Simulated assay, not measured.
Amino acid sequence: MGGISRREFFSGLKVALAGEKGGNGGSPRWAMVIDLSKCIGCHACTVACKAENRTPPGVTYNVVVEEEQGRFPNVVRTNLPRPCMQCDRPPCAQVCPVQATYKLENGITAVDYERCIGCRYCIVNCPYGARYFDFGDSYDQEMVGYSAAQAHEWGMNWGKRTKGKIPTGIVRKCTFCYHRLERGEEPACVETCPGDARFFGDLNDPHSTVAKLAASPRAFRLKEELGTHPRVIYLK
């Protein structure tokens, strides 16, 4: 873990999550670091995310993109987990005609479901493919009571899922499990990762795990040339 003990990691994260205060005394700048050398492509993050956020068919906040390089037998497989990048300069927000997508002070890019008109401009303008349209489909045939259960997202009780009513007919995305952060917990994908490939914390705190890992020479961000300044940082 780059010289950082698990005790230090969880201790610092607990303080940041409990107080919602950054290392400079203000709001935290939440960020996620993903160590690609530890990702085994098990898709536990994908499953945990769908279970936590009760996302419908066709909506998967956390996906793992797999790529093979080389020729047999010298083949190398790379697993690239891809949640929402929570960009500091989100291209999705720039094109929203009703300002339904906006930045929270803590750095999370949020969507106001009641304001979203489902135009999907943001989906087209997201360079990471991290946004999804909720067509109102469900897992009712596979899971009894799926549409009647409350989604944990944002702590809101939207009631039974019905086509044409919120939260269907709108655009959805990863929120770093904001409802869990409010309870002092880390995102479901981070908590579930069996290889400890994911780290979550406050970039404003120079002593936090994510701040130290983000400063590592191994660190990089996807499509940095676009100037989006993602809050998801990868380690080579």
Rank of each mutant, 00 (worst) to 15 (best):
I123V: 15
A148F: 09
G129N: 10
R183M: 13
R54P: 01
Q150H: 12
G195L: 00
G184C: 08
H179T: 09
R231W: 00
S138Q: 05
N24I: 02
T192R: 15
E153V: 15
V47R: 07
F9H: 15
K165Q: 14
N74A: 10
P97H: 00
M1P: 06
E66D: 14
C87L: 06
A151M: 14
D202W: 07
E153T: 13
G155Y: 12
P97R: 00
K14T: 08
Y146K: 06
A149V: 10
V64S: 07
G169T: 07
E105G: 09
P217T: 05
S216D: 11
C193H: 05
F133C: 12
K212C: 05
L222E: 04
E20T: 00
G58T: 08
H43D: 14
T78A: 09
K165E: 12
F133S: 12
G12A: 03
D140Q: 11
E52N: 14
S11Y: 06
Q150R: 15
C92L: 09
N62P: 00
G118W: 05
E52L: 04
K38G: 01
S11N: 08
C174P: 08
E191F: 00
S11A: 14
A130N: 13
F9A: 10
T101R: 14
G159S: 10
D196V: 06
A151D: 15
R120I: 10
G41Y: 03
E66Y: 01
G12H: 07
R161V: 10
E20V: 02
M85K: 11
G145P: 06
E225Y: 04
G58N: 09
D35I: 06
F72M: 10
C42E: 06
K173Y: 00
P187I: 01
S216Y: 03
K212I: 13
P194L: 02
K173P: 00
C189W: 13
A44M: 11
V190S: 01
E67W: 02
V33S: 04
A48F: 01
Y113G: 05
P217W: 02
H152D: 15
G184I: 08
Y234A: 04
P194D: 04
R172A: 06
E182I: 03
Y178C: 09
D205E: 02
K21S: 03
G26C: 05
G23I: 03
A151H: 14
V47C: 00
Y132V: 00
Q150G: 08
E67C: 01
N204G: 14
I34K: 04
E182L: 14
M85N: 14
C126A: 06
A110Y: 12
G19C: 00
P91E: 02
R6G: 00
Y234S: 02
I117A: 03
I170T: 11
M143H: 13
G164D: 10
M32P: 00
N125T: 08
W158Q: 10
K163T: 09
V64C: 13
P194N: 04
G118P: 09
G25R: 05
E52T: 11
K103Y: 02
G155L: 07
R115T: 15
Y139T: 02
S138R: 05
R172W: 14
Y139I: 02
Y121C: 09
G155C: 09
G164F: 11
